[in-house]
Amino acid sequence: MTDTSDTTARPGRRAVFEAALRRRSMRIAATSTAAVLLAIVLLVPLAPGWEAVKKSFFNGPVFSKTFPGLLDAFLLDIAIFAWSLPLIAILSLVVAICRDIQRPALYPLKLFATLYTDIFRGLPVILVIYLIGFGVPGLGLPRPWNSPYIWGSLALILVYSAYVAEVIRSGIESIHRSQRSAALSLGLSSGDTMRFVVLPQALRNVVPANMNLVIALQKDVALLSFVGPVEIFRQAGVYKSLYANFTPYVGAALIFLIITIPATRYADYLMHKRRRIEQ
């Protein structure tokens, strides 16, 4: 604290020592990573069942025969994802705002929003998809309104909106009360306060958390296959029973990773950026 000018001028003993320490830990990290990789590459094939596992999970011919079909089926996943996401954004925002309602007259809305998030966050996604995907069309709706695409997507939208609404609500609550008081004292209505003061900050605060949910949604789209649509997971299952081989699942996993790894990295980047701004 007392004398920093010395270290900025030329590397002091401390800086030299720290640089050496950094080099040393880099060396250790590289060596241990290499050792682990080498152990995996050398030891796994030594396992007695490796040949059988390789034939069942990493089968080249089966992979090349099924991969194009899997890519094709993945388009359906993307489509479901694409039409669900905007609806989730809208519904979750509405629910989050309802939960923040202060006026006594509108209390039923608040109660409804609370019940909604409690119920749909408490149920397994797959159960909701089954109940809504099969149950509602079972009421006797005419075509095309009984389509599993519609009701399956709705189930996904309901569940994910509950999660996203909670995230948005935490964002809203993170905005200090004094900001609302200040906005109100400037003459803004409570609606305008929400719209122009609270939400812009709240939503920005929760972008990283919501990115995680977007990634989870991307994967959970596959659950729609339970009510009929032949998307990538189901297509992989069909190939699995056709070839009596699990390689198509590995293919499907690769396709998912191609999408989700960049998305995860992007979420991490956003979170990092957020932290830097806050500091």
Binding site: F134, P137, G138, L141, N146, S147, P148, G228
Partner: peptide, 14 residues
């Protein structure tokens, strides 16, 4: 997934 689901889908007119 199974017979039950197929019958349900037929029943629901899907």
């Amino acid at each position: 997934n199974d017979n039950t689901d197929v019958t349900q889908a037929i029943q629901a007119g899907q």
